[in-house]
């Protein structure tokens, strides 16, 4: 219980170092190349040498992967032109070389200062992801921090074959404040952290099938979670899409009128809400299974 290094506390570079096989990471467009955003510089906003995303190739458990980690603290991990080009390029390379691609997500979506190029980059990356999927090249998103995956990056994450999440991770399209702004504080109080995590957090996403693995908040657990999916892929076909649509309709019918996220947990088999709230990763998974 003491002294563990939590995955969500690491920087993007530390996350990569912690999950890649020792010394195996080779960075593409590393900081000394100084490929930074010209737009931020013009606006008087500090730039970063990696423009908020570290990309490269590495091995995980001996298997070759393309690996990227977004830098959440840098403009919210948002996708600008350079950041977006690195992201798109990596997934394109994965499709070209038929090597699995792992993205450690930490982004609120498009960088407003360079909107169009961010939008285009996300769309192009999605196309590259689907190219990978058509070729059965695994694509995996890891969502493990409160910055999480929102906006275009929320959508992009769900385009990947698999999502590995921790209890700290959040996944959605509109962020809590935006939802509150449009729906009203009564419908969704963004200051209610418990509500926010119970609607967009890793545990709920796992229960609803939006996350494929829920793991402890440690680098080892995240690496094991990724490894589980490196040899697999999930089919993209009309049948699969239709089946997913059916599932979503069922979900809406079952929970559409629910006003309390605990009702969703209950409905998904979680009996002891208090114990489940405190449980992490596989312990939570076990509690949820027991109720089914």
């Amino acid at each position: 219980m003491t002294g563990a290094i939590l995955f969500h506390e690491l920087t993007a570079r530390q996350r990569i170092a912690a999950i890649a096989d020792k010394g195996s990471f080779d960075e593409l467009l590393p900081p000394p190349e100084r490929i930074t955003s010209p737009y931020l510089a013009q606006l008087g906003i500090p730039v970063s040498f990696d423009d908020g995303i570290v990309i490269g190739h590495a091995r995980i458990g001996g298997k070759k992967v393309y690996l990227a980690a977004q830098v959440g603290p840098f403009v919210g991990g948002a996708v600008g032109e350079i950041h977006g080009a690195k992201l798109t390029g990596l997934f394109k390379a994965a499709a070209r070389d038929k090597i699995p691609c792992v993205l450690i997500v930490e982004s609120g979506g498009v960088r407003l200062h360079e909107g169009s190029s961010g939008e285009i980059a996300i769309a192009e990356t999605m196309r590259a992801i689907f190219e990978c999927r058509a070729l059965k090249v695994p694509t995996i998103a890891v969502i493990a921090t409160d910055i999480g995956a929102y906006g275009g990056i929320g959508i992009l994450s769900t385009c990947c074959d698999f999502r590995v999440m921790t209890e700290h991770g959040r996944l959605g399209i509109s962020g809590p404040i935006v939802i509150e702004k449009w729906m009203g504080k009564k419908a969704y109080d963004s200051a209610n952290r418990a509500l926010v995590w119970k609607t967009s957090g890793g545990k709920t996403k796992y229960l609803l099938g939006d996350a494929d693995a829920l793991v402890h908040d440690t680098a080892d657990a995240v690496r094991d979670g990724i490894s589980r999916f490196l040899g697999k892929s999930s089919a993209v076909s009309l049948t699969a899409v239709k089946a997913r649509q059916k599932e979503l309709e069922k979900r809406l019918k079952k929970f559409g009128a629910a006003t309390d996220p605990d009702a969703v947990w209950n409905g998904m088999g979680v009996r002891n809400i208090e114990a489940a709230s405190l449980a992490s990763g596989p312990e939570f998974v076990a509690l949820a299974k027991r109720g089914k």
């Binding site: 590393p30 830098v71 840098f74």
Partner: peptide, 18 residues
């Protein structure tokens, strides 16, 4: 040949040493 520490974020900085 180079090392980077820190991230650019509120109240923070990155140092590239080459």
């Amino acid at each position: 040949p180079w090392a980077l520490a820190g991230v650019v974020g509120s109240g923070n900085l990155e140092v590239l040493l080459e």
